[in-house]
């Protein structure tokens, strides 16, 4: 038994890869659709958008690249659908150069779905180099930071940006971020000085790091990972990729929990010989 446990501990990792692949694929093909509990931090973002009167300015900064698309793209879709449904004026932009094409696609795609006109109901500013400095620039003079939008139209002439001189006139900013520059940059260089309300949507990996900002009110709400996207979709009554991915995430989490439990079981019953502390054998154990 102890030898068997030792052998299982050295299980070929390809077997684990197959398990994870199945745990991801099968629920996507045959979803079981369990109810999703909505957390207060996600509801806070939703409620703030609900509270904004039609015509208010909502800035969505899509600060991520294709690597984080599975988690943050569903959030972007859900937030944009909600904002367009509420007839808010939407400003889209990104601080990540590799996310520009993707950001444009989601903003213009959802806008088209709701019959919104580019330049009149929404504007997509695109990317401008400088990271957090772009936020300071926008806080000082938005049209000077982006003299033209992504499509080359003069921002000063856009109906969607009428009455907007800087970030001070923006009612709500949500940064969907996969790192820096992201939510923290928008808080430190934006909200702190220019006084707009700020919400965040981030990958599950960085969400725990933002809870201190949430509890102090520095950000009013937080959408964390695919789970957060699924919660937002539930709130607006939409069945998008967030909800669809929840079953796969449930299954993979359970496979990983099972693997951890088995690993510890095998570890405690497998034969252990004395190995020098810090040696490769000891590290491998």
């Amino acid at each position: 038994m102890r030898e068997l446990a030792g052998k299982l501990l050295r299980l070929d990792r390809r077997a684990i890869f197959v398990l994870i692949a199945l745990a991801t694929l099968l629920p996507l093909l045959h979803p079981f659709g369990l109810p999703i509990r909505v957390s207060p931090e996600v509801k806070a973002v939703h409620d703030h958008i609900e509270s904004l009167p039609a015509g208010s300015l909502f800035l969505l900064s899509l600060d991520f690249d294709p690597a984080s698309k599975p988690e943050l793209y569903p959030m972007a879709v859900a937030l944009l659908k909600h904002a367009f449904k509420r007839d808010l004026r939407v400003i889209g932009m990104t601080l990540w150069v590799t996310g520009t094409g993707m950001a444009e696609k989601v903003v213009s795609g959802v806008a088209k779905e709701y019959g919104k006109r580019r330049g009149t109901d929404y504007a997509f500013l695109g990317y401008s180099p400088g990271g957090a400095n772009v936020i300071i620039n926008m806080g000082q003079d938005l049209t000077a930071t982006f003299p033209t939008d992504y499509y080359g139209e003069r921002t000063a002439d856009l109906q969607a940006l009428r009455g907007v001189r800087s970030l001070r006139q923006v009612n709500y900013v949500v940064s969907l971020a996969a790192g820096t520059p992201g939510v923290e940059s928008w808080y430190v260089y934006g909200k702190e000085k220019y006084g707009f309300e700020l919400g965040g949507g981030v990958t599950a990996v960085i969400a725990p790091g933002l809870y201190p900002f949430l509890n102090t009110g520095q950000i009013n709400g937080l959408i964390g990972g695919l789970r957060g996207a699924a919660e937002y979709e539930t709130l607006i009554g939409m069945k998008g990729k967030g909800v669809a991915g929840m079953d796969a995430q449930s299954a993979t989490h359970f496979v990983i929990i099972l693997l951890i439990l088995l690993c510890n079981l095998f570890y405690f019953i497998s034969p252990r010989t004395a190995v020098p502390r810090g040696s490769p054998e000891e590290v491998g154990r």
Partner: peptide, 8 residues
């Protein structure tokens, strides 16, 4: 891992 998924 239990608490962040609907199945858990």
């Amino acid at each position: 891992m239990f608490g962040r998924v609907p199945l858990g």
